[in-house]
Design a protein around this nucleic acid. Sequence first.
DNA 1: CCTCCACCGGAACGTGAGGAGT
DNA 2: ACTCCTCACGTTCCGGTGGAGG
Length: 428
Amino acid sequence: MVSTGTDMTESQYGKYLKAQMIFRDENRLAKGYKPDIKEILHREKEIDTIMRDLSKALINVTPRNALVYGKTGTGKTMLFMVLTKQLEKEAPAYNVSIKTVYVRCDKVSTKVGVVKALIEELAAMNNKDIKAFNSFDAYFNKFCILANEYKGQLIIILDEIDKLQDINLINIFARVKESGDLEKNITIIGITNDIKFDEKLDPRTKSVLGQRDIIFAPYDANQLRDILYKRAETAFLPSVLENTVIPLCAAFAAQEDGDARKAIELLMYSGNIAEEQHAEKVTEKHVLLAKERKENDKITEFIRTLPTQSKLVLAACIFNISKTETFTYTGEVYNLYSQMAHDTGIEILTPRRVTDLLNELSMASILNVVDKSKGRFGRTKEVTIAVPISTAWHILMQDDRINNLKLNYTPKNIKIPDVSQASLRQFE
DNA sequence: CCTCCACCGGAACGTGAGGAGT
DNA sequence: ACTCCTCACGTTCCGGTGGAGG
């Protein structure tokens, strides 16, 4: 039996479609989305510089190497992705071949790994098979052979280049190019968010890589606002955004180092929440909720992924604090921690180590830890908790290794479970 | 003013896991 | 397969230290 089609009253999906009153194309706000060059705002100078250099590849002149600095969310990677893609697209019209290889050095951090990635890209162009070699030199030789066979321009982008274990790799490229063993058709572009990266380089590497420095300044609130408006045009349905929404998102993100990615994410999150609530418009309220939810998710995730020992220390703090409803001291924490560790059959750490764990929790803003002197009665740390206490406790008790603690220790005044993300938020 | 508590935190070292390089 | 090397995690040792009480 075959359905003849479109009886709307029978459609189970229809009501969901109808409910989607907010987004036109949510993908425009998604992480990997690459805008068109014309859509990119406030990077005119950088685009100009980069395109001027890269355009030489079109007449088969090797562009200069470059070192690109900028904090996260300033558009470095995105811009190079977009501009090199465009370059590759225009190459045939100029009768040249241009190949861009993009390597994320935080994922592939060894020189063997990087060269292997390059070989794979080059081999893929003419469907060659890739052999495994047993030394760096062998890999590098293979790369030279392939690179020499390739008559076009090869652009190597090393993203997060500061994570590269052996920066000497850059020198190896340079030396081989000088010696003539390698055609001079290779451009290396290093991207980093470490402003002082060049100080870690020896002068030679610096002169090889830093033929040109490009710096991406963080966006200010006004620029973020423009960027968000641009994205919103195509991402949202017309006039679903209240006027204050974008300025608010921009202002929040500007506070956080002008990270455009975060700004866009916040906007998307706000839209999601409006959608969940079947609202017709995205309002300021949704932005505030989104911000709060993002922060809560961060805390939840942080606590959830804490090592077991840290979880025990935190559990001890929480239980002590819930008893007095004020604060606790290092000594008390350690005593209870030892007890809890004993009860759960977990190895008991030394006090020295526990102070470090306490400090780590403080650094992460889960706890507030203040030095306190009780005079005659010694010096200690006064510990208070910086996150909603029942939220934290529930997350801790989701850990199988320590959740038998709740038999003896569940703090008073803790509202009981249903631990979905949504319900956690209601507490506090 | 001095003491002395109860802890702080630097330094040096041990250990085991995991990954890179040969 | 084997040897390095690095890194995270912990320990031991020990010289501080702010201020209430004597």
